[in-house]
Design a protein around this nucleic acid. Structure first.
Length: 274
DNA sequence: CACCACCCCTGGACGC
DNA sequence: TGCGTCCAGGGGTGGT
């Protein structure tokens, strides 16, 4: 389940490999995964790749002459580089393959098809159309911005953190991990967090995500990085997937509730309700 | 406008 | 072993 950390790690893995590569051909096995009426020809065919740009959970592949493709991995999406001469590790659910001139292939695979590709004439157009409604990137979110965002909503803090319009990049796994680190109950009303707790929340958000990036992201089921390697942050999850197991801090059993239609695990002792 | 329920989809876990 | 059922969740949509 790729979130910001997984996409950031992907960015680091793929950028050196893709920068300067020329897209010789594109195989689009499932045209319906391309949004905005895009087609095979609008997927950077013949373009030289300039670099990658990430915002939240989304990654843009930007070409030197302008056109850009936005990649969203959704729930089960994978994007990896297959070096020249190597065979694809998996063929099932591979929806798009970019054949790079002398540089192997870039592969997009997404079994559940919650992800997709979107074509734009430039990174500016992509930013204006697709990213304009997203909040600031969670990796560098500051307390003041976070507090301003939270002040305008009466939802639970967990629901607010998952809302990409307020902060971009936090998914279900890291929302729980961040709230545990900040010792805030997920069902706390967002507006009731004062300045001090917003500072703590912003600090924990940046720290947890940055730590996860250094570990190569979480591995839950499908996730692999740009080289096809699984991440290792799941070994460090304090609450996610640990319902009824002892809290790593106080030893009491962790609780499981549903918040904003998402499974939520927290420690009722360590995390205060506001 | 704010918020919530529902839906899309498939693979894996689990029970019988 | 094999089959049926349930669950996971990002984000779009439509209803309240």
């Amino acid at each position: 389940m790729p979130e910001l950390s997984e996409i950031a790690h992907l960015n680091h893995c793929l950028e050196p490999v893709l920068s300067g590569a020329v897209v010789r051909d594109v195989t689009l096995s499932r045209p319906d995964i391309v949004g905005r009426g895009g087609s095979r020809s609008s997927l950077l065919m013949g373009e030289r790749i300039k670099g990658l740009v990430r915002h939240g959970k989304q990654l843009a592949i930007v070409s030197c002459s302008g056109p850009a493709v936005c990649v969203h991995l959704g729930m089960s999406g994978q994007l990896w580089h297959c070096p020249a001469g190597e065979r694809l590790r998996r063929h099932d659910h591979v929806h798009c393959v970019w054949h790079l001139d002398g540089m192997g292939r870039l592969v997009f695979r997404d079994p559940r098809r919650f992800g997709g590709l979107w074509c734009f004439s430039s990174i500016d157009e992509l930013t204006a159309i697709r990213w304009s409604h997203l909040g600031p990137d969670a990796l560098s979110v500051d307390a003041r911005t976070l507090r301003r965002s939270l002040a305008g909503t009466r939802r639970s803090i967990k629901a607010a953190l998952l809302d990409q319009r307020l902060v971009a990049g936090i998914g279900n796994i890291y929302a729980d991990e961040i709230l545990f680190a900040a010792r805030i109950h997920p069902q706390s009303v967002a507006t009731r967090l004062g300045a001090e707790r917003c500072r703590r929340l912003a600090r924990c958000t940046r720290r947890i995500l940055a730590l996860a990036i250094t570990r190569g992201g979480s591995t839950i089921r499908d996730y692999v990085d740009g080289h096809g390697q699984p991440g290792s942050f799941s070994l460090q999850h304090q609450v996610y997937g640990r319902a009824s197991l002892p809290c790593t801090s106080c030893g009491n059993p962790l609780h499981r509730v549903t918040v904003a239609q998402r499974t939520t695990v927290f420690c009722p002792v360590c995390q205060d309700l506001f």
